[in-house]
């Protein structure tokens, strides 16, 4: 937690540097960012809504990385999750009953994401394929499958642009207010954040995953083969990333297009890293980046900056974090 607090502080510094680099007056820029993220109810809701898929996918990344599995495939798993959800939505079209349909679609996204992650995990364990590389490549395959899906079997008839059918309003996630975009997915994400924390730090399986990440040889010498443990971690990771896609689908978009993904699956990696791979830290960092998204759209509306600002800050944040870790490790070595 101390690391997460420090990280947020560092991120603030990075924000200032980013604004300076972008040639935006720092005080004005920060004001615009702040207004866009927290200025009114709508701004806060935007921050929350943007943070939600980041939190879910960030948790997914954190679980895998904690177990020593460097899942870079959050984006692919998110997209496949959404695609699986949309497939079920099409299948249920016309006769699905509201809450059951919603649950079925979300479950499909969980299964889709987990299945996509399982492909990489299986290749890694059975065939020795480097998991970092396979998950990166499966991202591209997933994105192209999305393009195929919305332009092919899932395409809405009579529409000039390729996109899927709009999900009936009743199937969408519940919204407390018509004025904002806040949806029930925010609650789902927060509940899962607590659940993942409980799982990792209070259950035997979660413990074994952390131990495997700390030292797989140690786990093996204690008669727990690390491979199945890491496979399970990948399934959970993929399930959470897939659900991020499903929640985004039923919470915001209601339909899929080729540009459905906002790179939440990629951004989940820095979110998880900045959060110290700890669920509470991931919650904090996903909210920060969600707010940054919301704030940046305000910044770009008032000139300067531009929507690339988020990515610049993300990149600087990860570089800063890696530098910080490097220095800390070097200190530990010199202190010994």
């Amino acid at each position: 937690m101390k690391v997460a607090g420090l990280a947020i502080l560092g991120l603030f510094g990075i924000l200032v540097v980013g604004l300076l680099l972008g040639g935006v007056p720092v005080v004005d820029g920060l004001r615009l960012l702040f207004q866009g993220a927290f200025g009114d109810r709508f701004a806060i809701s935007q921050s929350l809504v943007r943070a939600t898929p980041l939190l879910l996918a960030g948790l997914g990344v954190a679980v895998a990385w904690k177990a020593g599995v460097f899942n870079i495939g959050g984006e692919g798993q998110l997209v496949i999750g959404a695609l699986a959800g949309a497939t079920i939505a099409k299948a249920l079209h016309g006769f699905g009953i509201a809450p059951l349909a919603t649950i079925s679609i979300l479950l499909a996204s969980v299964v889709g994401g987990a299945g996509w992650a399982a492909v990489a995990a299986w290749l890694s364990i059975k065939r020795g394929v480097n998991l970092v590389i396979s998950t990166i490549l499966l991202n591209f395959i997933g994105l192209q499958l999305l393009v195929y899906g919305v332009d092919g079997p899932l395409r809405r008839a009579g529409q000039s642009a390729p996109m899927t059918e709009q999900v009936p309003d009743a199937w969408m996630l519940w919204r407390p207010s018509r004025q904002t975009d806040v949806h029930f997915g925010v609650v789902i994400a927060l509940l899962l954040c607590i659940a993942v924390g409980y799982f990792l730090f209070r259950t035997r399986k979660g413990y074994l995953m952390r131990a495997t990440g700390a030292n797989p040889q140690f786990v093996r010498a204690n008669r727990y083969p690390p491979e199945p443990i890491q496979f399970q971690a990948m399934l959970i990771s993929g399930a959470l990333c897939g659900l991020a896609g499903g929640v985004q689908y039923l919470g915001i978009n209601g339909q899929l297009t080729a540009s459905f993904s906002q790179q939440y699956g990629f951004l989940a990696i820095p979110v998880a890293l900045v959060g110290g791979l700890h669920p509470a830290g991931v919650a904090a960092s996903s909210f920060f980046f969600g707010a940054l998204f919301a704030g940046t759209s305000n910044l770009s509306r008032f000139g300067g900056g531009g929507s690339y600002f988020v990515y610049v800050v993300q990149g600087l944040a990860v570089l800063g974090l890696l530098g910080y870790q490097f220095l800390r490790e070097r200190n530990e070595v010199t202190n010994q």
């Binding site: 952390r210 700390a214 030292n215 040889q217 140690f218 093996r220 010498a221």
Partner: peptide
């Protein structure tokens, strides 16, 4: 160090 302990735990 190799398999007796997980040193970061």
């Amino acid at each position: 160090h190799v398999d007796g302990l997980a040193l970061s735990m």
